[in-house]
Nucleic acid binder design. Sequence first.
DNA 1: CAAATGATGACAACCGATTGCCAAATGTTG
DNA 2: CAACATTTGGCAATCGGTTGTCATCATTTG
Lengths: 356, 356
Amino acid sequence: MAIVTVPVLSRSERNAMAMQAAGTERPATIHDIAAMCGVAASTVSRALSTPDRVNIRTRARIEAAAAQLNYTPNSQAKALSSGRTGAVGVLVPDITNPFYFDLIRGTQLQLKAAGYTQLLVDTEESDEVEASSMEQLRKSADGIIVTASRLSDEALLAAAAKTPIVTINRDVAGVPAVVIDTPSATSQALDHLISLGHTQIAYMAGPLTSQSSTLRWTALAAAAEERGVDVRRLGPFAPKTQSGAAAADAAVHSGVTACIAFNDLIAIGMLQRLRERGIRVPEDMSVVGCDDIFGADFCNPPLTTMASPIEQAGRVAVSMLLAQLNPLAGGGSRSRSLMPTHLTVRGSTGPAPAAS
Amino acid sequence: MAIVTVPVLSRSERNAMAMQAAGTERPATIHDIAAMCGVAASTVSRALSTPDRVNIRTRARIEAAAAQLNYTPNSQAKALSSGRTGAVGVLVPDITNPFYFDLIRGTQLQLKAAGYTQLLVDTEESDEVEASSMEQLRKSADGIIVTASRLSDEALLAAAAKTPIVTINRDVAGVPAVVIDTPSATSQALDHLISLGHTQIAYMAGPLTSQSSTLRWTALAAAAEERGVDVRRLGPFAPKTQSGAAAADAAVHSGVTACIAFNDLIAIGMLQRLRERGIRVPEDMSVVGCDDIFGADFCNPPLTTMASPIEQAGRVAVSMLLAQLNPLAGGGSRSRSLMPTHLTVRGSTGPAPAAS
DNA sequence: CAAATGATGACAACCGATTGCCAAATGTTG
DNA sequence: CAACATTTGGCAATCGGTTGTCATCATTTG
């Protein structure tokens, strides 16, 4: 029986063969550069990451070779040895919600500017998915931005101990957070409605698990008491336009003349339903939304809403996270950032109808 | 001078110390499992990835240990050695555009279902950013979904030779593609307008680099000739609501009674501008959009538009890409998928005004 | 009972980078 | 010119897995 000797191939030989076979030019590695320059791979690594550590002449040679081979470091390998992945996870409860479009845009822009990659994850409004995603991201991302978390305070705190985290619209002591100050805008909305003569007002609540909704209601109820007007809470309603129909019906049935919705989606859904039912906005019913999402300005009528600097919130969250990741840059990173909001009055609010 | 002997620590010892020091429980590795079960790390690897290759009893022990340690494989390391990252890049020209929201949702859902991670990248409508992103993703993703590419046919073809790619709304021979059949819907839109008595119609074109816009215009011009009506092309206009103002003015100035916009954003922008100028829709001017994005149903008036199965297109693109990645599953993967569209008539189109 | 067969699991190389440590080369000073 | 200080760059271990190869052990068969 003949013994077939299989020649042992060096890395570059194999690479060359692979290229020949597949026609697919394999990305260059530091070894390729090292071979080309006649130095060790470690020197190449240093030349590119710690330039001072390498003679300026060899560095120049290496840089030239790198450019010629069109070298780009393999991020996987980098991540494995250095421990940092250059990626940041962004968790949103529902990509469908336009609110998060602006947020995602903000994080995306800021992350890209800092050379990071964005890993977008839809947690489907589920705390379980959220928890498992975070666990997963712990290894594949350097940090996580969690929006409108559905997790318990304890769970969030525990997670924050393991991974750098910044939350958005979820305030837990000990976890850096960006909070959009809609509760204060809620009072403005109430004053706006009161100035229009409304005294019977409803708050169309969001999900029970939403801290934002709770905070808004608390602020609203306090302000209402203070001002001596009647504000009742209806719902909860899912933050989708479809829920707007139920919300509209509930509002009409309750006899109020104005309502403040948890968010613009519900408000826009209400507008549609009210129109269907022949109830005029704002003549018969005033509607205030929250967030000023895409569409709030061109719906019918245009929506009076509490404008949130959503995209900016995303950017700030990224900045806070990056400050946490690279403490060197100084500038003591604040652990909490409150984003101001303001009321944008459009066509969906008007004077209260004469008492019937 | 005393010689201090630094004890050499084993991996697990170091790990233990790190845990003690930081209080941060480091994720378990196959080595931890191996140590716990008294087997080699490679055996653990096989037990988890090639179960048949390992005795059922040891496998059970390993699985138990893995569960107890709450083991999750490190995706970076996996990617490094296996060559596959479990991630798919999704390139969109502009995250701002609501069209891509639906698309992103579709890809996200389908990718997650298949256990893949989505890497979202905004190419900012720039061919350079697009090219560099693709080069970057070549190593950090198993495949790429490119929407409305700004690259040349050659560049796309070259890229597709190096990485599995599926394009959306960009048809290049040799590159798998999902194409939304808006050109055919354009003819339907034309017929709809003709049936309403319009004879002077404008097409508000999108970016010159957009193949979709060109194809729609070609189909529209052909259909117009066939039917003997006058359709002129105006623009190009950027696909943003802000461009709608210019588009509206151009349409009015050209004297047409109806226009078909490249997409809903332009159409919605037009509606706003026309309203500002006191031009009634649809009494004075009919407007047709394209895509049926979020907001098209509740703008004022609701927009007649060519409805695209956007989310579905995203899902199909993912399926095609995954079929390309795992050819084993059989089912000869088609290289081109045409998504049907249809006209959704709402309030923005009406009978042509009596000749003035 | 010995030989052939197959199941099982350990060893070690490898993926592409980073980094501590050390030796060689270079430069400086007395 | 010797002694010492500094660069400079290579070696090798490491990150956490995967996978080819091979020795070993148990089982079946002649």
